[in-house]
Design a protein around this nucleic acid. Structure first.
Lengths: 229, 229
DNA sequence: AGGTAAGTCTACTGGCGAGTAGGTAAGGCG
DNA sequence: CGCCTTACCTACTCGCCAGTAGACTTACCT
């Protein structure tokens, strides 16, 4: 009774398939986010997951399949988080504000997911890039539609497709970049960072340096920049 | 006179070292931009450069050194292009406009360089990322300084360091993302794309959907969006 | 208890690609 | 014209890592 370490390096405890698959996916997201697709090895993922390599292949197929599955899972989680934060009935600026808050909230609580999605997936040439570019494209289209809808609110005729799309691309990029910056400067709450971007894209530097800022309409459901993270 | 192919697969023509180094660098930027650092093989680079592998090692050292050298060369070229386009004497909005035009002009004429700089370098964990993050950081600081300076023009007191830096990060990211979008929609001239971003960040959506746009002060040296590419 | 299927392992193969050893042509210079 | 330096090549070694073969172990069911 003196050789009973709970963590025997040899054999892992027997678990049902669904649970193991989750563990493996979590480990994979972790390793991929730290090392990138190529530098990550199946050996390391299996080690982090606490099992041996053949399990990966038995459950998740090849390395590429595993990666693609990670991308899909994390992308879906993020899109749902954002969709849950936005209500279609609200006016455009409030919709944008809700979306930004949901986005930064997700990134703050799922840094590894964000790393995998933003950095790794987009820079690999494989079938992942498509998957990802697809989701990104959908996000851009959504924002573009929001913009077109915005200008319908007014009497302004000019809202070309290309124009809206390129502006949406810029906005999405600004969000991504700001999220990256935030990872290096994590002391600020999500709401503050989101509010900054909101002010930038809605008011513009021109207004900001003049002291004009945007703020959410005061309703019970609209807390200010100090809102939850 | 029937066995004189100019491209003999065997031996390459003898050339002075400096010229070969340039050829190698050009080939390396090309291959790295298409495949990324890991997927690019020294064999392929040597083939594109029209020489054999040992030459790479003789002239440029290891694969990592070669990549770092590419990054440094292209980053320097880009920073110089932008610096040449901006004059410190001009008011903030015009400086920003000049910088954006120079940036998009460079990207339009050096797509491979841009790919290497933006996508590949930033997603590799090696010493390159530092090199690159460094340059990006310098760009962000520059923009941040521009913003702080902007608000000095007015009587607005609030221009915290963090605030300016995060806004600058967002702007730089917007530029990067818009440049990527532009690569997929290359039919528009650089000036138009630059003008869009200028309007977004200076006026904001709020003004844009109301029909207010920014336009450069009419001076002889200030052509509109139809300016050179 | 004994059968069985799902879960898990150790220990291998095979290929790709970084980096190298050692030899061959070609221009310069006496 | 021959020698030497510089440019250049073919043909390897070697390690890493994706993916696999086949044996073993444990939970559950009757």
């Amino acid at each position: 009774m003196h050789a009973e370490q709970p963590v025997r390096p040899g054999r892992a405890k027997r678990l049902p398939r669904a649970v193991r698959e989750r563990q493996i996916m979590d480990a994979a997201v972790d390793v991929f986010s730290r090392l990138g697709f190529h530098a990550a090895s199946m050996d390391e993922i299996s080690e982090v997951a606490g099992i041996s390599k053949p399990m990966l292949y038995a459950y998740l197929g090849s390395k590429e399949e595993l990666f693609a599955t990670c991308i899909r899972r994390e992308a879906t989680r993020m899109m749902e988080a954002i969709a849950n934060g936005v209500e279609a009935e609200e006016p455009p600026d409030v919709q944008l504000w809700s979306g930004l808050r949901a986005f930064f909230g997700f990134v703050g609580e799922n840094r590894a997911s964000w790393q995998v999605l933003h950095r790794q997936a987009s820079s690999q040439g494989g079938p992942f890039a498509e998957e990802l570019a697809d989701m990104r494209g959908r996000a851009i289209s959504l924002v573009a539609a929001l913009l077109v809808h915005s200008s319908d609110f007014t009497n302004v005729p000019r809202a070309g497709d290309k124009e809206a799309e390129s502006l949406a691309a810029a906005l999405v990029g600004a969000g991504e970049s700001l999220a990256d910056w935030w990872l290096d400067n994590p002391e600020e709450p999500a709401g503050v960072v989101a509010a900054r971007l909101m002010n930038l894209v809605w008011m513009g530097f021109g207004d900001l340096v003049a002291g004009d800022v945007w703020h959410p309409p005061s309703r019970r459901s609209g807390p200010g920049p100090e809102g939850d993270a």
